[in-house]
Nucleic acid binder design. Sequence first.
DNA 1: GGGGAGAGATGCCGC
DNA 2: GCGGCATTTCTCCCC
Lengths: 243, 243
Amino acid sequence: MKDFIDKIKTAVENNETAVISANCSVSYSGRVESFLPAGDRLIIIKSDGNLLVHKPNGTAPVNYMKEGTKHEIVREENGFFLKSKNTFLKDFMNIHLHRIHFVNSHALEDGEDITVAGTEKHMAEMIMEKPELIEKGFKPLSLEEHTKYGFIDVFGHDKNNILVVIECKRQNGDLKAVTQLRRYVEKIKELKGLNKVRGILACPQISANAKQMLEDWGFEYKSIGPPKYLEKHKKGQKKLHEF
Amino acid sequence: MKDFIDKIKTAVENNETAVISANCSVSYSGRVESFLPAGDRLIIIKSDGNLLVHKPNGTAPVNYMKEGTKHEIVREENGFFLKSKNTFLKDFMNIHLHRIHFVNSHALEDGEDITVAGTEKHMAEMIMEKPELIEKGFKPLSLEEHTKYGFIDVFGHDKNNILVVIECKRQNGDLKAVTQLRRYVEKIKELKGLNKVRGILACPQISANAKQMLEDWGFEYKSIGPPKYLEKHKKGQKKLHEF
DNA sequence: GGGGAGAGATGCCGC
DNA sequence: GCGGCATTTCTCCCC
């Protein structure tokens, strides 16, 4: 146990990224309060102060502390504790380390960022490039038009010169998407002093309730999905799912 | 390198939770496509198939695979690859392991769940218990009233028997919260055939734009925050931030 | 730093 | 399973 504790101390002092596998219980106080009874978990301490507590299942961490958190190992009467404080956020965490399975650490260097293809933004850009995807005669004017009440994905006018507001969703359209579209259409009507502005929700699919609400309010639905191939795949290289 | 590879293989075969620190590049294809050039990262493989790739900074994983994913180490001409497939989700990941810093694993057992105090639900419950927090004479009727257009946090009537819809937010109220409230109020008006229904947004703070929109539509703002002390703290035990 | 909105959101609960 | 929604959302972008 003492060896593990020393390894953690050294790693934190040297700003390394550390991983601790341990049976522990976790108390947190900050934006909420939480308590997690004893169990085996993975604790990750990053060089920027981030701390993650992961259960052996699930994608999201069960507890965490944000960037800038300071960590300290403390021995008390009833055992060892990893105590973390983020003074700025008023976040506090207390991990009681009942038993440690392993500790590892390394100074990680990573200057590269991820590139993603297939986001909502790409979808909006695709519509700018190929306006006929919406309908014949549609003329897009701008991307991310900012208004006080939010910003609009695609903004343009149709073949009859009626203004059109398009809200893009890369996946299923839901009630939230329809209210969002409504908010933009109303704001544009008000700003431009217009009586008629069309609203189109562009997404691959739409829920029944959302479709009903869309129609109740006189808006339209156009089934479009995001483009999702990275350039390197466009150039005919082997696609990932072919390996 | 070969030792590390064997350790990974053994861990995955034995359904252990494994941690790999490595210089690697990551390709992903599924709901989107992504590519992450070479850098030092932490790779976590959980016993339920979840895989996380973490950069040395930030809270969220840069890449991940969900529960049920199958993992395999493959040696190809240009090196070692960790290949992951989730056939059901049509998700594919390919991690090129350029250099491994450490590998460790352990069979983790964790049957305990977290308890959280201070959520929006607790806030709604608090209002049910102490309706005077909203205003004198407010009589709450139900929690999470379900309508076709969404479900309402707290529903009741005021001292003049006017129906009141309350939307709770545990943190700052924004434009989305106001549109959400509006949707509920309108639906209740329609369902009950009423001309006047009050809408109250209950949250600790509200943005200037949201307040404006709220007032434009005749709704009200009540500054209330969620209760956030776990029972064990209420009972007079030392609070976490006092350590 | 706050506001506004997307996210490969995730996770929870209800039908 | 889908739908609707909160989240210690996180992250990005813009003012």
